[in-house]
């Protein structure tokens, strides 16, 4: 099998050696550079989503008829997309479909 590959054993070994020194110099990419296993508290916890509590109230999210009647969508995105400017302006890379 190795005979069929075009990368030679020496090239692969060289890549491994280079990788080893890359890792040693902490050069691997990525914004999340945590050290695995550093956290004795068993990692960052996400909330479990199944519970038996009731949402408080009767009239908020659940009961409004707005958005359900197939009428005009009235909401405009007002978040961090305003800050993340694309080469073509705020929030958009391509011309907006009309």
């Amino acid at each position: 099998m190795s005979a069929n590959t075009s990368l030679t054993a020496a090239a692969l070994a060289g890549a491994f050696a280079a990788a080893l020194s890359l890792i040693a110099s902490q050069a691997s990419a990525g914004p999340a550079a945590e050290q695995p296993g550093k956290d004795k508290c068993y990692g960052v916890s996400l909330k479990g989503h199944n519970d038996c509590a009731a949402g408080a109230g009767t009239s908020c999210a659940g009961t409004s008829k707005v958005d359900y009647d197939g009428g005009a969508w009235k909401y405009v995105a007002k978040g961090a997309c305003d800050t993340i400017k694309t080469p073509h302006g705020t929030g958009s890379l391509m011309p907006t479909k009309s």
Partner: peptide, 20 residues
């Protein structure tokens, strides 16, 4: 009105799950 408590619970919990 009482029924709306259940409707609300369902919506609040599912929206909350997506927000999280």
């Amino acid at each position: 009105t009482r029924f709306c408590v259940y409707r609300n619970n369902v919506a609040v919990s599912l929206i909350g799950a997506l927000e999280a």
